[in-house]
Structures are given as C-alpha cells and as structure tokens.
Amino acid sequence: MTRRPPLLEVQDLSVRYPAARRFPWWKSRSNAAVDHVSFDIAPGETLGLVGESGSGKSTVGRAILGLQRISAGTIRCDDVHITDAGRKVPRSYRRRVQAVFQDPYGSLNPTMIVADLVGEPLALHTDLPRSTRTERVVELLEMVGLRSRHLSRHPYQFSGGQQQRIAIARALALEPALIILDEPVSSLDVSIQSQVINVLEQVQAKTGVSYLFIAHDLAVVRHISARIAVMYRGRIVEEGEADRVCEKPEHPYSQLLLSSILNVDLRDQAQRRAYRHELAASFRRQEPTVDQ
C-alpha cells in the first residue's frame, strides 16, 4: 500500500517532567513521560495509539494539541510546526487540529447550550452570519446522529453517548484535518461504544479527516485503525498495520497486551489465559519492576 505524504509528522518527541529533588542543591533531573517518539499520519488515515495508564500516550496527544510543553523534537501538521516549548500555538493550527476527550460531560461547558457549544468554534474562526452558522450547526448535529431540536438543550440533558456525539460535532465544526481522540469511548457503555465508533467512521468516510485514536483497549483500536502504535513507558515499542500488530505482535509487551484482552468466546478465553500466563512469566523476568 502506497501512502500519501503525511499530514501529521511527529519526530523525536520528548516530554520530560522535572523529578522531585530532595534537597535544593541536588542536581536537577527529569523523568521522560514521552521519550523520543516518532510517527506520522496520512490524510484520512487513523493511527491507533495503545498503551497502559502512565505509558505516555495521552501526553503525546496533549503535545500535538499544544497543551503540553515539549522538551525536544518537532510536531508538524500540514505546514505548521510546533517546536519550541511554551510558544503560543498559531490560530491556523487550532483550525486544523481538534480533539475529543474521554469524559464527555466534563469536556462540555455545563452552562452552555448545544447551539453555542457546537457553534463556538465557528464564531471564533469564521465570520459566518448567525443564521448560516445555525444551519451549519444543524448539519453537524445531523452528521453525528442528533437533531435540530436538540439545539437549545444543555449537556446534562443528554446521555453519555449523546454528549460524546456533541463533542464530536464540536470538534468537526471547523473541518479540521486531524482529530485527536483521547479514549473517546472508554467511559461509555458497551452498547453505546459501538454506536460512537460507527459515527466516527461515518464522519471520516464523509469528510476525510484523520484520527489519532488513543486508547487502552486493543480490540476497539483494531477496529477503527489502519495502523497501530504500541506505547510502553514513554516509548513506541511497536508500530505496524493494525491486523499485523493484532495477530503477530513482535514486542513482548504487545504480546502480553494482546493476550490480556478478555474474550467472550469461552473456549478461546481459557486457551488465551494459559498462553498469557507463559508470556507474563517471561515478561516479568525481563521487566522485573512491572507493577510494584
């Protein structure tokens, strides 16, 4: 498969936090949350980024959104670079890169109504007249499976799945090239999870937006991603075609992660458990500090 020139390019990205010093005269050191991470995403493509909590996957997403100081490396989307730590992200970049977060209720301002929530990016970045803006908001709501009668409601009047749809509509408002999806379905019920993933896929088919899908659930990530990168302790330990990574993982951590997925097929689950025990034993020998 030939890939188009990448939309997003992340090179040698590192994010370090200063480590606690016991005495002020001690030499200052730092812990790397993200350690020399590189990847790229083509237009219209979805890259899945999986890892456990603390692996640095969300920090990567925050860095791309300009919410996180970068210690080293470069991030480029289209022709805009964010390199230096602490610099303000240009407005043109904000138009191109949007986000949907894990907690849909928390990420929507509870005092605003849907029309304002979805319309706000348009009001900020475009000079569309009010009526055209409302039309566009309705269009966006319909794209995510909501209706115009939802316009004047507050976020608390919706269920979790619907709130996440509103968040997606808000992220889509400026027709971004890339949306960072940080655990967008982890807090939703299983039956709603698949609804939201279907919406994300329909939107991508219609608009050609790229996704960085950050999650801990390999089965969900596999469904929506063309490629998957596995993060472990701040580094990408494996990257490849989604099917390849999920069927023949090479790095021991990917193997352990994969074998930990619980299966609803009972016989398969019993076999998988035995396999996982072998893997876990050998993995712990290599990484003696795991889970202390």
């Binding site: 698949s194 609804q195 896929e201 390999l218 469904h223 099917d243």
Partner: peptide
C-alpha cells in the same frame, strides 16, 4: 444478544460494529 454482539472483538474489521440502537 445485542450486548454480546456489540462487544468489540479482536477481529479483522468488516463494516460497521454491531450496536444496540437508542439509549437506556
């Protein structure tokens, strides 16, 4: 049945994910 069908499985992707329409 719907709940079991909508559990994401580690399988090659084919079409849309099964889901239960509507909300509780």
């Amino acid at each position: 049945a719907g709940l079991l069908a909508s559990v994401p499985r580690n399988r090659r992707r084919e079409g849309t994910l099964p889901s239960i329409p509507g909300t509780v």
